[in-house]
Amino acid sequence: MTSAAADRRRAFPPNWPLRIGLLVLAIYVVYAAQILDITWTRFLIGIEHGERFLSRMFPPDFSHDKLQLLYAGMMESLQIAILATVFGTAISLPLGLASARNISPAPIAWAARLFIVLCRTFHPLIVAILFVKAVGFGALAGILALTVASVGFISKLVGEATEEMSMKQVEAVRATGASFMSVIIMGVMPQVMARFIGFIAYELDSNLRNSALVGLVGGGGIGATLFTAFQRFDYDFVLTIVISIIAIVMVGEILSGFMRRLFQ
């Protein structure tokens, strides 16, 4: 009897590599927490700090001079986001097409890919720090940082969209004797354009959010306003800014969704 049971084929054999992997992970988590001195006591103290911080935020400060500061910061962020989106997507279309291996010669495609990877390597925040060092505090640094981020993101998507398009349609245009650029314009762009516009909408949305971020490191806009408010312990104004950012981001998301549907 026992031998019969042992011979039975097993539907769910134990996955030893997975078990060992999970065990190792558990040990590492405990070890890392100890090294970083993460303890329950510290967590409780932290919560107390947080409570005090939150209570100082209420009620949000809607006084006239603060609203003026808020408006100026918001407008600058909007400008940063829109300019970065325009510059970024304008560069992304040709760069993305150049990176598509089905229409671009291999050396050009690889060079374009390398450049895109470079643009994507660092978080927009780190790129912003670099540009603040290079061109100084203010909106220009923010615009440049978000442009780089947009190029990295949109040209990658454009490249992928181009590689997924129907080569049959391109082939037919090529067969008419069309030049390379004419093939791009009449065979490739019609297939990629609808998605490209979707990417623009998405990127505008994302730049709107990130424009608040780059201000924290000196890239101008509402982020700079927020940073100043933090440093001056104006926590009630901080809350006003945070609420406004959330509102703007939501409006941006609705707008970008609308834009995508419009050009479907």
Binding site: A172, T176, A178, M186, P190, Q191
Partner: peptide
């Protein structure tokens, strides 16, 4: 192998792409 997102007349005019300069197509 028509370009699906172009109109019918645009597809027919693709037959002239070997003759007309790029800017005209653009």
């Amino acid at each position: 192998n028509l370009v699906e997102r172009l109109t019918v007349i645009e597809n027919v005019l693709c037959g002239r792409l070997g003759y007309v300069p790029v800017w005209r197509a653009w």
